[in-house]
């Protein structure tokens, strides 16, 4: 069995994000970069499937700048077997999905697991687009994954509005990981040691023969407005009036 997982390089969620001076992106100086937390959950799930199946291979893929090697090495240190880095600049979700399709066609995995979304642009598109382009079944926002004994299908529990939905998808399939799927392991020191000897293949996006012209152009970025200070009211009546006439929420 082969499992392909993604590892996008994103700013640490604990970093303080500022809009850059040209107003079309974030200020990258001083930012700490990490594996997208939802991708980390995807990697953990792939490793758990591998541990349960015994003879499985986990391939971790990143598409982005060459610095994403660090995120791939983190995936390898967690326990993935090998890594593929597709380097390219200014790639939007549709370009990333098309590149990922090429890698999937080359690797022929039984399952592709991606994070449900990356925490930088919160697009929540790459998994779905990839499955669509491949013509594969997809199970999104999953909180539980069970591979059938004969490995021909997977039972996925999805977190949907107001409850859970359990579906079965034939393999190969694409799955996107939600927050409660698992708690990712640390890259242990023995894991970091082993990662030294694991292969990391680098491919240029331009060599894959896909049109990566962005379909989306970011025109501007602005920080959220500063929160205004609260106000202490004298009575319930005053509060109700304020909610009705000022906040207009009642």
């Amino acid at each position: 069995m082969k499992i392909l997982v993604t590892a996008k390089r994103v700013p640490d969620p604990e970093s303080t994000i500022k809009v850059n001076s040209s107003g079309d992106g974030i200020e990258e100086a001083g930012i700490k970069w990490v594996v997208n937390p939802f991708d980390e959950i995807a990697i953990e799930e792939a490793l758990r499937v591998k541990e349960a199946q015994g003879d499985a291979e986990v391939v971790v893929v990143s598409i982005g700048p060459s610095e994403a090697q660090e995120q791939l090495r983190t995936g390898l240190a967690m326990g993935a077997d090998r890594a593929i880095l597709v380097t390219g600049e200014n790639l939007d979700t549709s370009a990333v999905a098309k590149i990922l399709v090429k890698i999937v066609e080359k690797e022929s995995p039984d399952i592709v697991i991606t994070g449900k979304q990356a925490i930088d642009d919160d697009s929540n598109e790459v998994g779905q687009m990839t499955a669509q382009l491949l013509g594969w079944p997809q199970a999104t926002f999953i909180s539980e994954l069970k591979i059938a004994d004969d490995k021909s299908s997977a039972e996925c529990t999805r977190e949907v509005d107001g409850g859970m939905e359990t579906i079965s998808v034939p393999l190969p399939a694409l799955i996107t990981a939600d927050l409660r799927l698992n708690e990712p392991r640390y890259a242990s020191l023995p894991g970091i040691m082993k990662a030294r000897k694991k292969p990391l293949e680098q491919i240029e996006a331009a060599s894959l023969g896909v049109d990566t012209t962005p379909k989306i152009v970011i025109k501007s970025m602005a920080p959220p407005p500063a929160r205004e200070a609260g106000r202490i009211v004298e009575s319930v009546d005053e509060l109700v009036t304020a909610l009705q006439s000022e906040a207009k929420v009642l």
Partner: peptide, 14 residues
Amino acid sequence: SIEQQILRDSVRDF
């Protein structure tokens, strides 16, 4: 090095 950065993140997390 990349390895030292991963190590720092991982030990911090631990």
